[in-house]
Design a protein around this nucleic acid. Structure first.
Lengths: 225, 225
DNA sequence: TCCATCTTGGAACGGCGTTCCAGATATGTC
DNA sequence: GACATATCTGGAACGCCGTTCCAAGATGGA
């Protein structure tokens, strides 16, 4: 039933606040979200926001959680390997669209609550893969660690303002920077710098997932899977 | 030559500032390092510090760099596998002693400069392992991603005030929290919660390194290594 | 000794997260 | 419909932060 008295603006709610926060993060980066920009965007005062949200940390956690939920909903039916790849790619792409997500994931797994979400979804597939029960935890941990670590590193690439346009440009810049390193100290890094140019990070990321999966097969599933 | 006139206090220097910053981070955590606590500790003013250091980001980068250099100096001679394990453990232990390091590494690889250091040291061993040149970059990336991801996740465990005393206690708390998750949504996580109790994170971390190494062997070194 | 340069300490500034609270708005009761 | 109560709102104010600015102290060469 519609309220009898007209409201000046749409009623404030936790969802509306979190939604606005995500938009601000997406458009203006991590520093773009302040309680002041948020009150302006929502045409309200700080106190009103604090009625729905305990503090900024909780707001960031809620924003992270919302985006993460969408990202993990991929769930196409397929082999455990395909599922794992799909989940990993979902996370990778989510970070690509929301560069602030990488930082938040890193900060929040240092404070719990995020890990179980990813852990659960990967762990189920590890189970289905046929890994013996005693190795579930170790194996899932390794996979999740790789996925989060790699996704976080690739967040650098996503940090350029335009999502895909100057991505190659960015990689070229990093490649050049690596080639300019001290030859005495960084011979290896310089040697592989060329490989950075024009390489596909998604493909590279998936190759890493496959590498870990190959390790799991070799160590825990000795009879060909 | 010693200065003829006596100074009231030891001369300020970049090294002394960074050293004090690391101490403050170690003893009071990430929030404990402010320019005010730093000026108090060094008995000086903010302007004096800014003469030696551009801003707080640079200070944090210098602190991270210093600790990282010490951690990566492990370098015991041995097989490539042993070297990789040693470097990984060095990083793991450094994060254990300096919990703020995990956050800083995560934040700074989203801004370059840290990665090459670790990349170089791991990459050399990947080369020695016999991985074909075309795969150096992918392989090293995967290893570094796992190491940083896992070390970062384990930083949670290090965040308790007393380094080792209540570590088991902490793991028990996490384990209990996982057991209290919604059975509908988190069946897998609940099932492995018990494995958390009293498990050794270092061992677990190393098992992950071995898993990735096994994958590298399986994929890139088909003839037994 | 004097001067140019390097270095210091502290006051001040703007912006942040957060608190506080007076008042507007909704809800329940007769 | 009217009143009491609980819920929600907006904005002023607070304390702390990183940073800037600058007058004054220290240093070293001519």
């Amino acid at each position: 039933m519609a309220p009898r008295t007209r409201r000046r603006t749409e009623a404030l709610s936790r969802e509306r606040i979190v939604e606005a926060a995500v938009e601000l993060l997406d458009t203006s980066g991590e520093t773009g979200l302040t309680f002041r920009t948020l009150t302006e965007r929502l045409a309200t005062g700080a106190g009103a926001i604090y009625w729905h949200v305990a503090n900024k940390d909780e707001l960031l956690a809620a924003a992270t959680d919302g985006v993460l939920t969408t990202a993990l909903r991929a769930g196409s039916p397929g082999s455990p390997r395909d599922e794992i790849r799909a989940v990993a790619l979902g996370l990778f792409d989510a970070i690509d669209h929301h560069p602030w997500l990488a930082t938040q994931l890193a900060l929040q797994l240092a404070r719990g609550s995020v890990t179980p979400r990813i852990f659960e979804v990967i762990g189920r597939q590890v189970r289905e893969l046929g890994v013996p029960k005693g190795q579930w935890f170790t194996t899932t941990s390794a996979l999740v660690s790789y996925i989060l670590g790699a996704a976080g590193q690739n967040a650098t690439n996503a940090r350029s303002a335009v999502p895909h346009a100057n991505r190659d440009e960015f990689l070229n810049a990093v490649s050049s920077a690596w080639e300019d390193l001290d030859p005495e100290e960084y011979p290896f890094t310089r040697a592989v710098a060329a490989e950075l140019r024009g390489h596909d990070d998604r493909e590279q990321f998936l190759a890493g997932v496959d590498l870990v999966l190959a390790g799991i097969t070799a160590v825990h599933l000795p009879r060909a899977e």
